[in-house]
Amino acid sequence: MTPYLLLAAALFCVGVYGLLTQRHGIGILVSIELMVNAANINLVTFAHFRGGTAGPALALFALALTVAEVAVGLAILLLLYRQKGDVQVDDAKELRQ
């Protein structure tokens, strides 16, 4: 079980790192997907080695819902692109810090 959990943890850390450092909009979306799918791997791993169906059920919900989430994120990026001609999140600095 441990290798799978380690893989998931590694993916999760890559996702968190990406989210904190990426300035490109698409990179941020990819990082979010990595984080969520790391959690999904965990859920399926635990269910596989310990039995039970609740974990994969939650993973299925998570898959569908994050697809919706990322689709909305992409739409917001598109709006950003139309306004600024770029998807560098750094450029979005109109609001006072």
Binding site: V36, R50, I76, A92, L95
Partner: peptide
């Protein structure tokens, strides 16, 4: 401001969602 507000809320909200799901996975584990 719209796109920026939406983007900021989205990125940090999605980050929170990722953490929540990961936490749930370990509670399940």
């Amino acid at each position: 401001y719209a796109a920026e507000a939406g983007m900021k809320y989205f990125v940090l909200g999605a980050f929170g969602t990722g953490l929540l799901l990961y936490g749930m996975a370990y509670a399940y584990g």
